[in-house]
Write a protein that binds this DNA or RNA. Structure first.
Length: 325
DNA sequence: AACATCAACAACCGCCCTTGT
DNA sequence: CACAAGGGCGGTTGTTGATGT
C-alpha cells in the first residue's frame, strides 16, 4: 500500500509564486499559524500543494529570514561546518540565523564549492587535490592503481575542469615527458575537443604523478586514516582560512611546522570548537572527528605533488592554488 | 543584435523519520 | 504494534537574468 500524495497533482498550480499568492499565504499564516499544511492552501484560497506552501513559507516568506548576500563570517561558518558535517544543510543552516537549508545549499553549490576547488581543495573531502592523488598513487600496486586513479579522477574531474578552463591555461603537452601509451592529442580546435583534451591532460598528470617516484611521499602517511572526511577542521584556529590566510608556500603542503591548514596540529579533533554556537553540534563534531583523531597522522608531509617545484598538468602549483574568484 | 553559456536561486521530488491514533 | 499522515531533508531541475562570443 503506497502513500497517498500530499495533494491532488492535477488541481495544483506549480512554478513561481506570484506576489498575490505570497500575500494570501502570509496573511493566512499570520492569522492562523502553520498548524496543518495540507489545509492551509485550501483555507487560504490557494491552488497549491501544502508542501509547496510550506516550502514557500520556510524558504522565503518567513519574516525572520535574511535575503541578502552571505557575509564573510557566514561563509566561513558554512565551510567549517561542511568540513565536519558534510551535506547536512539543515544543521549547518541552524547555526546561521535567518538562513535556510535551501539558502545554504544553493550558496554552497554555486559559490563555495568552486571557491574551494579554485584553492586546490576537494570540496567533498576538504582535502587538497594533491593529497587525494597522492593517496590514489600509493594506495595500490600499479596495475590496480591505474584503474583506481581513473575512477577517482572522475570524482573531482568537474572541479578541476572548472578550475583549469577558467584559467584558460595554454596547455603545452610535452610529448617527451609523457609516459608511453598515453594519448598525446595536441590540436585544440573546438570547445569539446578542448575539454576532452583537458581531461586527457589531467589524466596524463595523474599518470605522471603515479609513475614518477620522486613526486610521491616517502611513505604512506595516510595509512590508517579511516573515514574519507579527513579534514582539517580540527585545529579551529579558524577554519577554513580566508583566501589571504592560505599559505601554500614554497615548502609545499603541510611541511611540519608550516602554516598549512592541514598539518597535524590542525587535524586533532580533541581541541576542536566549531565556533561559539555549539549546542548539538558539539556531539556531532566530536563524533565525526573521533576516528580522525585516532589516526591523525601528518598528512602534510605526504604531498609533494603540488609544491612549487613540481609542475603538474603543466601548471605551476601557485596557479592552481590561487583562488579564481 | 542575436545567440550561447553561465550563475544564481526558487521550486519540486522522493525518501525517510516522527507522531498520532 | 501497525499504519496513516505530516513534515523534514537532501538532491535535482527549471527559470531567469547576466555575461560572453
Amino acid at each position: 500500500m503506497g502513500r497517498i500524495p500530499c495533494c491532488e497533482k492535477d488541481n495544483v498550480k506549480r512554478g513561481q509564486w506570484t506576489p498575490e499568492e505570497d500575500n494570501k499565504l502570509a496573511s493566512y499564516i499570520a492569522q492562523h499559524g502553520t498548524r496543518n499544511w495540507r489545509l492551509i492552501p485550501k483555507n487560504a484560497g490557494l491552488q497549491r500543494c501544502g508542501k509547496s506552501c510550506r516550502l514557500r513559507w520556510t524558504n522565503y516568506l518567513r519574516p525572520d529570514l535574511k535575503h541578502g548576500e552571505f557575509s564573510e563570517a557566514e561563509e566561513q561558518t558554512i565551510m567549517r561546518l561542511h568540513a565536519v558535517l558534510g551535506n547536512r544543510w539543515s544543521i549547518i543552516a541552524a547555526q546561521l540565523p535567518g538562513r535556510t537549508d535551501n539558502d545554504v545549499k544553493n550558496y554552497w553549490n554555486t559559490k563555495l564549492k568552486k571557491k574551494l576547488s579554485g584553492m586546490g581543495i576537494d570540496p567533498v573531502t576538504h582535502k587538497p587535490f594533491s593529497h587525494l592523488m597522492a593517496e590514489i598513487a600509493t594506495a595500490l600496486p600499479p596495475p590496480h592503481m591505474a584503474h583506481l586513479a581513473e575512477a577517482a579522477l572522475g570524482c573531482f574531474k568537474d572541479e578541476m575542469l572548472h578550475l583549469l578552463t577558467k584559467k584558460r591555461v595554454d596547455f603545452q603537452l610535452q610529448r617527451s615527458n609523457a609516459p608511453q601509451g598515453t594519448s598525446t592529442s595536441t590540436c585544440l580546435t573546438t570547445k569539446s575537443d578542448e575539454k576532452e583534451d583537458t581531461v586527457e591532460k589531467i589524466r596524463l598528470g595523474l599518470s605522471r604523478a603515479i609513475l614518477d617516484p620522486d613526486m610521491l611521499p616517502p611513505s604512506k602517511p595516510w595509512e590508517a586514516m579511516g573515514a574519507p572526511a579527513t579534514n582539517f577542521i580540527g585545529g579551529c584556529s579558524g577554519f577554513p582560512p580566508s583566501a589571504s590566510e592560505f599559505q601554500y608556500g614554497h615548502s609545499g603542503f603541510g611541511n611540519e611546522g608550516d602554516g598549512s591548514p592541514w598539518n597535524t596540529s590542525m587535524c586533532t579533533g580533541s581541541t576542536c570548537t566549531a565556533g561559539d554556537q555549539q549546542g548539538r553540534l558539539d556531539g556531532i563534531i566530536e563524533e565525526e572527528n573521533g576516528e580522525e583523531s585516532k589516526g591523525g597522522k601528518d598528512l602534510g608531509s605526504g604531498s609533494s605533488i603540488f609544491n612549487s617545484d613540481c609542475v603538474l598538468w603543466d601548471l605551476p602549483a601557485d596557479d592552481l592554488m590561487n583562488p579564481i574568484m
